[in-house]
Amino acid sequence: MKTIFVLAAGLLISSTSALANDYPTRNIEIIVPFSAGGGNDVFVRALQPVLERELDTNLVVRNVPGGGGAVGLTQASRLPATGYNLVAVSDGTLTQVASGNVAFGVDDFTFIAKVLQEPYLLAVSQDSEYQTLEDMQAAIAEGTTVRVGVSGVGSSAHLTALAIADALETEFSTIPFDGGSETISAVMGGHIDAVVLGGAELRSSMSSGRVKALATSYPERSDALPDVPTFQEQGVDFTTSVFRGIAAPSGIPEEVNDRLVEAIEQAVQDEQFLRSAGNLGTDVETAYGEELEAFIQDLAERMQQQADRLN
């Protein structure tokens, strides 16, 4: 019986908030608002060991799937802003806000760091009749409607596909699939003409040679995909990127924010992390503080515009 009391007492003490200046004094929990195995999850799992070393504490990853990220984000937005509750964020977070189906806004989070970014790719099957973006544009000019698969209805890939259609001055027949791999197998099997997906999701099928990217949404070609031309160099005015980062419920103490930024800055220089990120088809592209805030605001506005069109 005595041990139970000791355990219980330990539990109580360990969870009361400690002073901010010796942060962190206990485990930090990161909510991943998707199930294990998604891009967000793999990102956090790759960051976990290095960040644990930098912060000298345990990071506990908690997957809270449901509602396409809405459940986990709602939960995270309501947690105490102590720095012991973090959440993995991405474009999807802003898409959720833009959809108007959720009860949280961009202001409910303090965005601590943007860590990774990857391009959106317009990709086709290796034996597609569209071997270049030019081929596709020519077909569009003749009145063909291109059937484009995206992962998830109303997802950021969906909204991006709409924006690409705009930039190409056409309308796609956009077909939402349940997930990235269903979308990719549909394009490989020739059931649809093209897909719009993040670079990481397409990475394995591109390296298998079955899928070919026609254009990347980066402003310049990336080191990871040197053979994929940008939309811009092919005369289409379209740039965007997928980002992944870390946020906290809004209002965390400044010292905590600084400590986390410092730790993440160190962590992303770790060789093992860089290699993992590269192998996953993403680029380490960090942003913090005001720069990050401006980036988020801009992206949120653009998402909102596309989402309004969808409804």
Binding site: T16, E29, V60, R62
Partner: peptide
Amino acid sequence: AITIFYLFLVGFSITLPGLPLAD
């Protein structure tokens, strides 16, 4: 209950709801 709680915490990194008044 305590065994399962700690098994999940340590073994599977899943934090179940702790004791009330903890936060």
